[in-house]
Amino acid sequence: MEIGVVVFPGSNCDRDVRWAAEGCLGIKTKFLWHETRDLSGLKAIVLPGGFSYGDYLRCGAIARFSPVLESVVEFVDRGGKVLGICNGFQILTELGLLPGALTRNKDLHFICQDVALNVTSSRTDWLSGYESDLSINLPIAHGEGRFQCNPETLRQLEDEDCIALRYLTNPNGSINDIAGITNKKGNVFGLMPHPERACDPLLGGIDGRSIIQSLIY
């Protein structure tokens, strides 16, 4: 079973994802240049962190129009699993595969640190490896991670059990401490923290392994 990692001009966590998946967990991984439309044979797709297309206009605003994402939307419609990490999460909201938007951190700082997170829903495969209400530690590294949505969307996210991860101490002003959400169907997961940076014990923690492993469940 093989997963695909999309490489946009400006992605910078694509190789980290490959190391986490292939190097640490033995999951065969293929890079997908943003101009490809061929996702055949892939079990899951990862949109990695970075600054796709320089994040011009808004984070993820230009990436949304890349050819590979047309195929990713069809892939999701067919039930394929897509994980968006950091910039990948921003792209998923711009694409409309996940609701809401991510904007400037409340205090304007680019925050690069480990954060404690609460697993608020283990409804989907992505987090079924954790017990509900478990606290995990993952690194964040973003300047625009403040999740925003209108009250109706927030209610819907809560009613449909789509809020997957919350910050224990909110670092960026995200509404209701939201760090990661899934779609209703559960095959799309977007989060600001970087699970791929918490898969190798040498880096200080392996709390991200279960999320990367779930790509092939």
Binding site: T103, R104, N105, D107, L108, R146
Partner: peptide, 13 residues
């Protein structure tokens, strides 16, 4: 512009 209901931290700074 950011919607009036959305905090504009750059504007506040």
């Amino acid at each position: 512009s950011l919607r009036s209901s959305v905090l504009d931290p750059a504007g506040e700074a």
